[in-house]
Design a protein around this nucleic acid. Sequence first.
DNA 1: ATCTAAGCGAGACGGTACGTCTTGTCTTAGG
DNA 2: CCTAAGACAAGACGTACCGTCTCGCTTAGAT
Lengths: 199, 199, 199, 199
Amino acid sequence: MSARKQARNPGGRPRDSRVDDAIASAVRELLTEVGYTRLTMAEVAARAGVGKAAIYRRHATKQEMIFEVLLPDQFLAVAPDCGSLRADLAAVLAEIADTMASPPQGTVPGLLADVHADPALRDRFNEKYLGVQRRTLTEILDRATARGELTTRPDPATLNALLVGPVFAWLFLLTESPDGLPALTSALLDATLALTGPV
Amino acid sequence: MSARKQARNPGGRPRDSRVDDAIASAVRELLTEVGYTRLTMAEVAARAGVGKAAIYRRHATKQEMIFEVLLPDQFLAVAPDCGSLRADLAAVLAEIADTMASPPQGTVPGLLADVHADPALRDRFNEKYLGVQRRTLTEILDRATARGELTTRPDPATLNALLVGPVFAWLFLLTESPDGLPALTSALLDATLALTGPV
Amino acid sequence: MSARKQARNPGGRPRDSRVDDAIASAVRELLTEVGYTRLTMAEVAARAGVGKAAIYRRHATKQEMIFEVLLPDQFLAVAPDCGSLRADLAAVLAEIADTMASPPQGTVPGLLADVHADPALRDRFNEKYLGVQRRTLTEILDRATARGELTTRPDPATLNALLVGPVFAWLFLLTESPDGLPALTSALLDATLALTGPV
Amino acid sequence: MSARKQARNPGGRPRDSRVDDAIASAVRELLTEVGYTRLTMAEVAARAGVGKAAIYRRHATKQEMIFEVLLPDQFLAVAPDCGSLRADLAAVLAEIADTMASPPQGTVPGLLADVHADPALRDRFNEKYLGVQRRTLTEILDRATARGELTTRPDPATLNALLVGPVFAWLFLLTESPDGLPALTSALLDATLALTGPV
DNA sequence: ATCTAAGCGAGACGGTACGTCTTGTCTTAGG
DNA sequence: CCTAAGACAAGACGTACCGTCTCGCTTAGAT
């Protein structure tokens, strides 16, 4: 995922993957210890035992670094296929909720703000996060349609907002505990499925 | 709204209310022109024709300044009473959506990030924004219960997340156009009301 | 001498002269302790108990800062008038030699290199150092001419090079001790005066 | 000149002399184009079509590299013997002046500054440049003494400063044109010889 | 005909300084 | 006590450069 400018020419010393790991670990530690805003590049470098240049060789800005470190490479890599629309949606929602709830306090809101401030980061966010979500939801709807589970086929963007929004709001607007997420997502699936109409 | 530290001593020169207005206007202009992150106090002061001290006398930090300038004083001042649960929720949701959609690009996510970073701002946010929302929703539920519209009385926090979350996600995660909000909120109300059970 | 951008408008907090002094002292200390090359702005700021911005408000670059701190404000302010050409030249030469020998090891060569690398610094150097020297020498020659001490009037630039060059070479090319300067300047004056011809 | 660490073991690939030449050419080009300070090792390597390691295999530091590239191998290899003290001094002075005036703008002052900052470079400078000068001057004085041209035998260091200093000052303090050097050196010899006394 | 030590170009590495920027506080002179 | 202007301490940012190290490969001389 990282590796922004891969060497075209195979000559030259190759990137040291231990440096990637050290950076990622330092970022995660510091996010936990000091939070998104107070994380500094100098401290990441020091903590990782790495020069700042090694970081900037991999990540264009502090924001992209954090995004790239936190977003799992395998995020929604395969669309779940559990046999029913509800089960598929539940699986997707669980993975999304997990990705939101895992990073340390304040990281997700901080990142979202920077996504809105930095066009380059926005592009990466759209590509690596939103696009994957939309493709996965579309695939799930395709399968449900094939199964005859849907009377009306909802708009994927609307469905996306209806599913992800409450989880985000629960965690980052209301700042409620992640422990309440299961109950929330259960109600959320009931409500959403009411829209698609029972067969 | 403003006036964080009211003069204890009535003696001395009174605050100039034109300064308050000039600051508010400058903040709104700059949010539109350069966005939340690139707005600086020095530029607000220059644009408003005001000293930085005059700003800090009114607002403790940059973040509180923006929050106080943007949040309408009358936000959800009176709970709507339109005769039905759906109409009441629609009215509340419309006002909330409007408050979210009005500020310039990136302002709401920026503010939300700072709410997570700054405990003092979080207190103000809880008091002036979240608390009002929850109180209003509770009152609406009370009325609906009295009318006999509810078979099960939902948890206010869950309801809050179900209603506000999708609007937030639509605007700030998916970055879809505010034009799509009416369709979204309509579906949203349908789905949410399906939970409360038809009478 | 310092004060690069003087406030046009008298409004605003005035510069704190203690900051000027603290910077100058820190620069002198650090030049002595670590030398020209290893002096860093961050350390100057720390040593002076001052923010870096306070330094850059006064001095455009590290090089100009050192130049402005080291060059005495009164350098050759008044041309000596001792009654004879030789005495006048001796006085000027002593002051120039003193200005060269005073700064800590390596400072003068370092500064001279930067003068050749930075046009802005070169302008300041020409104005504050060379110009003053040439004007002073010209004035001394004028007086000697009026006294009838000169058979041929030497070119001021040549005279300048003949006088200052050996001192510079003694200190910075040969790296001989400043203790040898009196003997050198004495021989130097004899040689130079031989050119102008005895009356 | 080059070859700082000669291979002890004759095994292994020998140095490629074309690499030496390519480095020297690149250094000279870049000194002319960007000057001493802005010359970087990476750019020298790129220009020479050479790896940085190949440079550092030959030269310990950037400063030594430049010094070694610029100082002629044959600098003052043989003391001139022109039949008179003045002619000998003129020949030495011309060669020294030429060595100073040849390198691109700013190179000599830059190098001199680094000589004062780096003890290792200073040693090389003393050995390859100053020592040669002093030995040559001493030899010339010996011959002049044998010829009976000297009434008083001047101190070699003083003579060195008196001769070389004005040339240095002319070029690097006053930044006058090298075209003026012949006139300067002529006056300089007159003045200096006046000290040694006519026979 | 290997073997092997050292050369080679490319470029990543740790470290460190630079000059810019912003925040929230403080200091003027004046209303 | 307010105001406008702007200096202040602190410290993060992203860039640049140095001198070292690592990669895969080439090039001789010694066996």
